[in-house]
Amino acid sequence: MDISQLRTLVFVADLGSLNKASGRLRIAQPALSRQIRMLEDELGVRLFDRHGRGMTLTDHGIAALAHARHILGELDDMRQAVGGPSAAIVGNVSVGLSPTISNALSVPLVAEFRRAHPAVRVRIVTSYTGYLLDGLFRGDIDAAILYSARATLALRTEPILSENLFLIGPVSSGLSPDKPVQFKDLADLPFLLPSRGHDLRAVVDDCARQAGIDIDVVVEVDGYGSLKELVGAGYGYTIMPATAFEREQGEGQFALAPIADPSPVRQLALCYPRDRRVSRAALFAGEVMKEKMIGLVREGTWNGTLVG
């Protein structure tokens, strides 16, 4: 087993095909295929299922990938330790963001890596909290912004801000940022919300219990893009952070209003795995995201309250 085989495993797993990995690594596809076969022979297990659409990891492959990332990360850290604290960061980093946060942080995160550490290969995983947690536990994600209500003792968490949630509707709804809506009045509206078990849905359901009402969820939508399209088409309302609809609201596609008595709020935290070392690339990513979020709150662009 050598480093090139582990690097091939990571690239093929991330990109889903030998062809894409070949283009990224600039190594002929047959050579990459041979490295994968040699690694499988040495481990005595099949790491990938091959199919017409590409390659997907087996259960053995998922376990091997976590170890490969760890080994490659240790190697990168050794190079950087020899070069001193001022050495450029190299290697790979995987960052987890929810769809509502990704809009605000993806561009500045990539921009800072390209400016300060262009040799780092950045992977942004955009999904809901449950999937991001699994990725942190498996070693597939190095750092994430999560809703701390879902955090566990297995994570190092640093609370950053409490985020206000708003009532979002089509432009025809007449909602206004200057006119708060009482939570009890939401009982008369049709809602499009994520399914039960999603962190945002838990916040909404808890507020509904406090207000003594039932929310009429006409459609459960776990796809962020689909939810936006359905609200914009007039099929119902949703409850989301204002940052998730900031661009579309500015373009006149949606209207929003604050919610009162009670006001739905959720806390955001920067999270790292506690059971393994955190790379310099992951720490850099975390600092960039934290500073960007703090800056947006202070500018008034991100509607929330800083923690601490």
Rank of each mutant, 00 (worst) to 15 (best):
A269M: 07
A281N: 14
R298L: 13
V288H: 01
L268M: 10
T301I: 14
V265F: 08
I294K: 01
A285V: 03
A285W: 00
R247E: 13
D275E: 15
V278E: 07
Q253R: 13
G300Y: 11
E248D: 15
S279A: 15
L270E: 02
T301K: 13
F254A: 03
E287Y: 08
R247S: 14
F254M: 05
S279T: 15
S279P: 12
A257W: 00
K290Y: 12
L270G: 01
E291R: 14
A255H: 01
R280N: 11
F254I: 04
A255E: 04
R280H: 12
F254L: 08
D275Y: 14
V288T: 04
G300T: 13
A257D: 02
L270H: 04
M289D: 01
C271A: 15
A257G: 05
V288G: 03
A269Y: 06
L256I: 15
A281K: 05
S279H: 14
I259K: 00
I294Q: 03
L283Y: 06
K290L: 04
P273S: 09
R277Q: 14
Q253C: 13
G252Q: 03
P273A: 02
A260L: 13
A257M: 05
S263D: 11
L268V: 08
E287D: 12
Y272K: 02
V278I: 12
P273V: 02
F254T: 10
A255I: 06
M289V: 01
G286W: 00
R266L: 13
R280T: 12
G300C: 11
R277F: 14
V288I: 10
M289I: 06
D261E: 10
C271G: 07
A282H: 07
K292Q: 11
L296C: 06
M293P: 00
Q253P: 09
R276G: 08
A285I: 05
Y272W: 14
G252I: 06
V265G: 02
R298E: 13
D275P: 12
Y272T: 04
G300W: 09
E287M: 07
A282G: 09
M293K: 00
A269W: 03
V265Y: 05
Y272L: 04
P273W: 10
A260D: 07
A285R: 00
R276K: 05
L270R: 01
I259S: 01
E248Q: 06
V278C: 10
Q253V: 15
K290S: 02
L256V: 15
P258Q: 08
A282C: 05
R247Q: 11
P258T: 07
V288K: 03
L256K: 05
A285Y: 00
E248C: 09
L268P: 03
E248I: 08
F254H: 06
R277A: 15
G252C: 04
A281C: 07
R247G: 14
E248K: 04
G252H: 03
L296G: 07
S279G: 12
A260E: 13
E248S: 09
G250D: 07
L296F: 06
V297A: 07
C271T: 13
I294H: 00
S263M: 13
E248W: 11
L256N: 10
E287K: 08
V297Y: 01
L283N: 12
G295F: 06
M289W: 01
D261A: 09
E251K: 10
E291Y: 08
G286H: 03
D275L: 11
S263I: 08
F254R: 02
E299R: 14
V265W: 01
F284Y: 06
P273M: 06
